[in-house]
């Protein structure tokens, strides 16, 4: 038991670092994912994750696999695409989902091209799928900072963020906080995606946001419980995925996301709030 569950982390420093990294990512990504889901922006998160790629790639072009260059590039690209997609949908007939799809395809192709201009396929894989088993001190600090900022910002934005989802007209009638809140929230999404990008790569970063959030939806009927659930599911998926990759010699990033995916499928089947099992056998109806 000890040897298989604790041993890898006690023995290998890279496993400890990976665990700290995925825990930090789960802490910030889970609640952000819950809000993305409740605001019906799940695919927006996916599109923005791809949009980060060309920015990070340009950083890579200038400075190689450098943390600050790729972080700044990714943040800039994420913000530009979020704003551009918002503007296109506001001023043209194209809906936001269509304009995001256009932008993210463009970004993905551009990003892969830029990385290939200079780097090898190994570097490309690094950018696309991350290096959760090779997190250095600075990357860990970045991940911890991002999750700290995220949790504190969500605490401040909580009320307008919830109200903007439930009853935007009411929010507009009592406050002007709506638009700044939305922008700050998009900023948090980009920030968490950039953090996740360093550990899991652009293609999988969004997985630690959406999968735990979607799984938590099946266990909680209250938004607070849902956010806590998403964090717990994210952290357990991180732990389970790392162990899985260690014992079965699987690539670590995909193993973490696969575990989160497994948690989602399990919740879909057995979740107390609308899981398939409860839909099929709801039990006898109550008195009142």
């Amino acid at each position: 038991m000890y040897a298989s569950l604790i041993g890898p982390f006690a023995e290998f420093e890279f496993m400890q670092r990976a665990l700290v990294g995925v825990i930090a990512i789960a802490l910030g990504g889970g609640p952000v994912g819950v809000f993305l889901m409740l605001r019906r922006m799940s695919l927006t998160g996916d599109a923005m994750a791809h949009a980060i790629l060309p920015g990070a790639a340009i950083g890579y072009l200038f400075a190689g696999l450098s943390l600050p260059a790729m972080t700044i590039g990714g943040l800039a690209a994420g913000v530009i695409v979020a704003v551009a997609a918002g503007l296109v949908s506001r001023f043209t007939a194209l809906k936001e989902d269509a304009s995001l799809a256009a932008f993210y395809l463009l970004s993905l192709a551009l990003g892969v091209t830029i990385v290939s201009l200079r780097g090898s396929n190994v570097d490309l894989l690094h950018v696309l799928f991350g290096t959760v088993l090779a997190l250095d001190d600075n990357t860990l600090l970045l991940l911890a900072a991002i999750s700290t900022i995220t949790v504190m910002a969500l605490a401040v934005l909580y009320r307008p963020l919830v109200l903007e989802c439930v009853d935007p007209i009411f929010l507009r009638s009592v406050s002007r906080a709506g638009t700044p809140t939305h922008l700050a929230f998009l900023g948090l999404v980009v920030l968490n995606l950039v953090g996740g990008f360093h550990a899991l790569g652009t293609l999988l970063a969004v997985g630690m946001m959406m999968l735990p959030a979607a799984a938590a939806r099946f266990w909680a009927s209250d938004i607070t419980a849902m956010m806590i659930g998403s964090i717990v599911i994210g952290m357990l998926s991180g732990l389970g995925g790392l162990l899985l990759s260690f014992h079965l010699e699987l690539p670590a990033g995909p193993a973490v996301i696969l575990t989160a995916g497994g948690a989602y499928v399990f919740s879909l089947m057995f979740g107390r709030e609308g899981g398939l099992l409860w839909l099929m056998w709801p039990g006898k109806h109550l008195e009142a």
Binding site: L38, R159, L163, V166, D167
Partner: peptide, 19 residues
């Protein structure tokens, strides 16, 4: 125009009147 699928309780929705 209210999103009734949002996981919020009656108490929480009413308390927003105190905004």
């Amino acid at each position: 125009e209210i999103d009734r699928t949002f996981p919020l309780s009656v108490y929480d929705l009413v308390s927003m009147g105190l905004w």
